[in-house]
Nucleic acid binder design. Structure first.
Lengths: 177, 177
DNA sequence: ATCAGCATGTAAGGCGTTACATGATTCA
DNA sequence: TGAATCATGTAACGCCTTACATGCTGAT
């Protein structure tokens, strides 16, 4: 059995909680996991077809308020595949930071350029950190629910690392002045 | 002028320090920037052709010890393109952590699976952190050289974030037990 | 002799993004 | 009435990885 691609696992994961349309999956991804995983329509819709062909999900048409939707739900087989993926030790964790690349090759320009690039990065990180902190705080109150606990832990990962980023930014700027 | 792809910038960046063969570029990438950027032969060699077609680099054949090599060096035009990229504020910083994805959807399996996945992540991070710390330490002594300073700062980024990862791992495991 | 490492490349596929195309509905 | 959002999709391309193919050299 060939290894499923990750977007398929994201879809199965989302559907293991609730039935969703492709459009709603995109929203869920944007709102809750986008800081460590992304999805796009050009990515999601073909994956939905693929998953349905493999009988891991099933679709049903619905007309909500006169507008037609395709709502998907996960099958027993889909749940099994999701679980197998969760139990698989292999996991690719990739960091691709162009900002670090630019810093590494900083000698090709002047120090002020390097500092400026760090500041742009810092700004973005600060903004994202503020959001993650709010999310994290709001989840703190319902850790008795397992799903909320898992959600909290990923948000918390973001908070910890983004705080480390900011600490590093300050140090790096100091050393470059 | 179309935006050059990043592997091209990596190559220009490396060549701005020293002339290299494609093979050596791969080694440099693996040894110094692989924790935030990767390269592969299937990636590098076609890029070299492209860059030479654009006159950003120039090749010269050499026979070192009877073995033939193609050594590349950067042109003035290449240096200009590198500098433009460094000054461009746009930078894509992507984190794609399958481990976090599995944790987020942890409800699909049991807690011991989630803990196990975190432990595997922790193990890998510990190993990489040890390497980064050594590198960082060895660079601390020559920060007067700008290139070493830039190198040090990227290594230092790795140290800070990996330490934050480990801190998070400990906390997450505690909460999952 | 054999095996690790040097050295260059190609082919196929993975996996994703962006832009485009279409049309309905809701709200100001 | 016009803009934002809902909703589904396709096409083209970006960019990388993996696996394959080839052959030399240096050390044991």
């Amino acid at each position: 059995m060939a290894r499923e691609k990750r977007i398929n696992m994201v879809i199965l994961g989302l559907l293991s909680h609730e039935d969703l349309t492709g459009y709603d999956m995109k929203k869920r991804i944007d709102n809750s996991i986008s800081f460590f995983w992304n999805g796009s329509f050009g990515n999601i819709y073909p994956a939905l077809k693929e998953l349905e062909d493999e009988s891991l999900i099933k679709s049903s048409n619905a007309a909500v308020g006169g507008r037609e939707k395709i709502i998907y739900h996960i099958t027993a087989k889909g749940k099994k595949v999701l679980k197998e993926w969760l139990k698989d030790e292999q996991a690719s964790n990739e960091l691709r930071y162009e900002t670090l690349l630019k810093l590494f090759f900083g000698g090709g320009a002047d120090r002020s350029t390097a500092i400026h690039n760090i500041e742009i990065f810092e700004e973005k990180v600060s903004q994202d950190l503020a959001l993650l902190k709010m999310l994290s705080k709001s989840l703190e109150d319902c850790l008795d629910n397992d799903d909320h606990l898992y959600y909290y832990l990923t948000a918390s990962f973001g908070v910890e690392t983004y705080e480390a980023y900011l600490k590093w930014c300050a140090k790096a700027k100091k050393m470059l002045i």
